[in-house]
């Protein structure tokens, strides 16, 4: 074979993701893309742009908003959405607390109560397909989830009862009320995401790059001092040069010490890092070995 028919692994991943997105739009009625302003969802949105060009992205985006946000990320979300001319729906956890749909947990973490808010929005807008940016390299339970992940009418994932997924043939059939979570980035790694950001010249919220920030250290992780994060009396805020590897709930997501202030430096850093993305940054996953699995069964992403 001539070298001309070579396809780089990043191009192969992109082609697969685009195929997945087109399948969903062709076969399901009401898709929506979960867009938080985080890097994985930014990449997903770019893939959607490329999948349907020169037409517009044929679905709205939705943000499940815990109310605990980094302001840069919210600004980025809004700017990106208006640039692409998309409809943005916000499923708001604070509003759900106010209306009594969910109750604020005593410890103030809103990770778990996101799920009912998400499910409520799915029901309200009658979405039958939800694109999520999760990757299989992130976590053990995710490593076993399908690209097209069937959810029952309660949004629940049943890991022992998954549909076999063969070749590139995806089964999106479902009864009314049921839905499919779709993960176009299933086969991407953190490093692939960064290489794609570099290839596409994608802008990100600035907190993904090294900056100086007031943080406190807890359990070996560096948390930003902000209105959502309750510092304990013994914890002394200190200035550190950090960046975020993931952007989740601002009360739960930790930063990593870093000098990487350009895409290339981040790529080098990610290539050399010895700690997983979630391990380095997510307080919520440390709870138990099966934390993610349990949340997914309840309908989480």
């Amino acid at each position: 074979m001539t070298a001309a028919y070579r396809v780089s692994q990043l191009a192969a991943l992109e082609a697969e993701s685009i195929f997945v997105m087109r399948e969903v739009v062709a076969e399901l009625e009401r898709p929506v893309l979960l867009f938080s302003g985080g890097k994985d969802s930014i990449v997903m949105l770019r893939l959607a742009e490329r999948a349907f060009a020169p037409a517009r992205i044929p679905f709205p985006v939705m943000h499940v908003d815990t109310g605990h946000n980094f302001p840069e990320v919210l600004d980025f979300r809004d700017a990106r959405v208006s640039e692409l001319g998309l409809q943005l729906l916000v499923a708001s956890v604070p509003e759900a607390i106010e209306s009594g749909l969910v109750r604020e947990p005593a410890d103030g973490t809103r990770n778990r109560i996101q799920t009912p808010v998400l499910l409520h929005a799915i029901e309200k807008y009658r979405f039958d397909a939800l694109f999520g940016g999760a990757r299989r390299d992130e976590e053990k339970a995710r490593a076993k989830e399908r690209v097209f992940s069937f959810r029952d009418e309660f949004g629940q994932w049943d890991p022992k009862n998954q549909r076999p997924e063969l070749w590139s043939i995806y089964n999106g059939r479902h009864h009314p009320g049921e839905s499919i979570r779709v993960f176009p980035l299933s086969n991407w790694t953190e490093l692939d995401v960064w290489h794609y950001i570099a290839r596409e010249g994608l802008a990100l919220p600035a907190i993904y790059y090294a900056h100086d920030r007031e943080v406190i250290e807890r359990d070996g992780m560096f948390y930003a001092v902000n209105e959502f994060f309750a510092t304990r009396s013994a914890e002394v805020p200190m200035a550190r040069r950090v960046r975020y590897r993931t952007v989740g709930d601002a009360s739960q997501t930790a930063a990593v010490l870093s000098d990487a202030d350009t895409v290339q430096k981040v790529i080098e850093e990610v290539a050399a890092t010895r700690i997983t993305e979630r391990g380095a940054t997510r307080g919520d996953d440390k709870v138990s070995e099966a934390a993610m699995e349990d949340r997914k069964k309840e309908g989480y992403f």
Binding site: S8, Q9, L10, D75, F76, A79, R80, E83, L191, D192, H195, A198, R199, G201, L202, A203, L204, P205, A206, Y208, Y209, D261, T262, V263, Q264, K265
Partner: peptide, 16 residues
């Protein structure tokens, strides 16, 4: 496009 967000440095088009 868009003035929001950061894309500091890096060779555009660089690939694995």
């Amino acid at each position: 496009s868009g003035g929001v967000g950061a894309y500091p440095g890096g060779v555009r088009g660089a690939e694995h």
